[in-house]
Design a protein around this nucleic acid. Structure first.
Lengths: 181, 181
DNA sequence: GCTGTATGAATGAAAG
DNA sequence: CTTTCATTCATACAGC
């Protein structure tokens, strides 16, 4: 698929054409390396969907070995990948429903869409150890998904959610010029 | 960036989406005008972080002059802006720390930052009155305000992007396992 | 060369 | 307040 991916921000400014950003050294957008994409994809396939802070940090650090990368790139990558996977699946689902596939599905049509249903082309490979690279440290991958310790203790009364929607204004505008003395 | 932002909601047809009973000429999502954004940003910069209900109402009313807007939009805007400012800060922080390879080799192009973070050129004008508009409704809003004085650096950093990791990694060990202390 | 598609980035909206 | 979902914008790249 995305095999022709070259390095990261090199050529850039090639399409320039119109505005010729003349960015030159300043690539406006992260362009993942093949290795980076591959690893990210593997992680995703291993079941990782929304990496935590620590996870993002580590991943970013690791991937920086293959090319310039920032934490936000990893963050966005997973966000997008997940969203698009879902979107695609949703679309397919809709499509199927739309075309009303003949025959019945031997499966129960319950909540079979909430897991990690991948497309039909993966021989399955449920993560178990997540050994992406020639790791050699002690084992125990532990895919630890959500492990957030939400210690929300803020019990501060907050008077919000009182918007009276539907109450649209129609009175003369006042003055919005902030006038901080 | 591009300032050619279209005004506000303009898609009248093909809204589709939730074409159901409560159909209407409403677009699914608020699309702020540049003026609106600018003003909101100014308010934010002035120190306003969590406007109260009445403040939201006023702001919303004022901004409605520049385009369609609802109270909840203002509410969400501030919430998102605040949260993202924080996130960005944390990410950048980590990023800097990460790219702090700091070799004797000096920088070449420096500024490898992406967009954003460009509005930090204000000498901290900690407002003190924040007289948005000549508020003069009812005494209801005169409850001594609840202006969060800037600088509330509560301790947090537990879940989200709190890149406070120690010096655990310094080389690309080719291992991406997540190791949760 | 322009146009379509894939995807990085941004943000409104909402759930938790 | 924190985290996630959905939609959209912008851009890189491929195909025509």
């Amino acid at each position: 698929m995305e095999e022709g991916m070259s390095g990261f921000c090199f050529r850039s400014a090639s399409v320039g054409g119109s505005s010729g950003s003349t960015a030159g050294t300043k690539c406006g957008r992260w362009n993942p390396t093949t290795e980076q994409v591959k690893l990210l994809t593997e992680l995703f396939r291993s079941g990782l969907r929304t990496p935590s802070t620590d996870q993002i940090q580590k991943i970013s650090t690791q991937l920086s070995f293959y090319g310039k990368i920032e934490s936000k790139n990893v963050f966005y990558w997973f966000q997008n990948h997940k969203a698009r996977e879902r979107q695609k699946r949703r679309k397919v689902s809709f499509d199927e429903k739309e075309t009303m596939v003949r025959k019945e599905n031997t499966k129960v049509c319950s909540t079979q869409n909430f897991a990690e249903v991948n497309q039909v082309s993966e021989p399955e490979r449920v993560m178990e150890t997540l050994q992406l690279f020639p790791l050699n440290s002690f084992g125990e991958a532990a895919e630890t998904e959500k492990l957030r310790v939400h210690g929300n203790d803020q019990c501060r009364g907050n008077t919000m959610f009182s918007y009276t929607m539907g109450e649209q204004m129609e009175h003369p505008p006042l003055d919005l010029r902030l006038s901080f003395a």
